[in-house]
Design a protein around this nucleic acid. Structure first.
Lengths: 205, 205
DNA sequence: ACCTGAACACCGTTCAAGT
DNA sequence: ACCTGAACACCGTTCAAGT
């Protein structure tokens, strides 16, 4: 890559990161090129599709997530590994608004620039799920795609402004459905409160 | 309303139903007006916002859903009433692609044409949930908004082409998390199979 | 009252012309 | 090699002009 091209690429990516943070995954590509002070064709040259651009933005996080899966396998119980990784997955898919839907589409679209990452991540999740199932701590009637779907649904919840405050709590609810013998309070984002505290909350208001 | 206006209104609605079925909630309004053989301004006169148009399309289904809630209260056990209504809710929110996100936004946006319907439906759901909780058959640490959120997430799952085949199964998984003492096989869309059959499925492939 | 469609400010995508 | 920006075919939304 020529030096000027490299510079454009890097700058484009930095600007895109800012704009996509603001506007979400369906941000205006024109706006990105404009703010980067670059012709619209230059953006298309470096990122032939919107997904290619997002893939470049998300790659780092995706790679970290795959590495995390391997780490959790050695450092935690099979149960904790699954739940912790699931939480990280949801956080990662929420880095930018609207990427979850693209990820769910990409997993079946071999042409998508996000396809490979999604398949890799599903495989990592499947591995953690299978290990937990073998130990009897995760329900046996779901597979890696179901896990992917549930994680996606949770990330989607966090994307909706009106539901985002519930996302942590509902993570616990769904996690308790995946696990065989755990209360949602052991697993939820606000575990510190415990179930009793939440009941008080409702009673108070 | 003048006779010609009434005719335009009705025709517009019929065409919109077809186009939104094809293209989803973010269908082209221009296209709807065009196919209806009507000026774009006419569409805006009858439906000042996209949400107003969708509200008109969804009203019937929403009303039926509210009626269903009352009916389930008298005809079924508190447990069955909650689950059956939830299933109907999800089906209703999936009538057109992309409405779920609008509904989740509308519940907090008093200006939205969908606001009233959403609040009514959440109230109906809350009622069924509270009754089930009082009997101890639904977990106590969720409220009507959580239920609304979970139902929305399930409807969203069904909207994603790659996840739709799992939607029924995952309905059972999430429902089993809401209920206190039910296996997901009692509640899932493919209850006929039972959990054993699903394990065989995995083992066979 | 109601309808129309041009006008405006935006998109995404492509591609001839420039360096 | 790489960049530019005009061109094209679309949007949503508004509003003066018509009946």
């Amino acid at each position: 890559m020529r030096a000027d091209a490299r510079k454009n690429y890097d700058h484009l990516l930095a600007v895109a990161r800012a704009v996509v943070t603001e506007q979400g995954a369906d941000a205006s590509l024109r706006d990105i090129a404009r703010r980067a002070g670059v012709g619209l064709g230059t953006l298309y040259r470096h990122f032939p599709t919107r997904e290619a651009l997002l893939e470049a933005l998300l790659r780092t996080g995706f790679d970290e997530l795959t590495a995390q899966a391997a780490e959790f396998e050695t450092s935690s119980s099979r149960e904790d590994a699954l739940v912790s990784w699931l939480r990280d997955f949801v956080a990662c898919a929420q880095e930018y608004r609207g990427v979850v839907a693209l990820m769910m589409a990409a997993i079946e679209d071999t042409e998508s620039a996000l396809h490979a990452s999604c398949v890799t991540m599903r495989a990592a999740g499947t591995r953690l799920l299978t290990r937990a199932q073998a130990e009897g701590v995760a329900r046996a009637d779901i597979d890696g795609t179901d896990l992917f779907a549930l994680a996606g649904a949770l990330a989607w919840l966090g994307d909706q402004p009106s539901l985002a405050p519930r996302a942590d709590h509902l993570f616990g609810v769904v996690a308790s459905a995946i696990l065989t013998n755990r209360a949602s309070s052991d697993v939820g984002g606000n575990a510190a409160l415990g179930p009793a505290a939440e009941i008080f909350e409702q009673a108070d208001t």
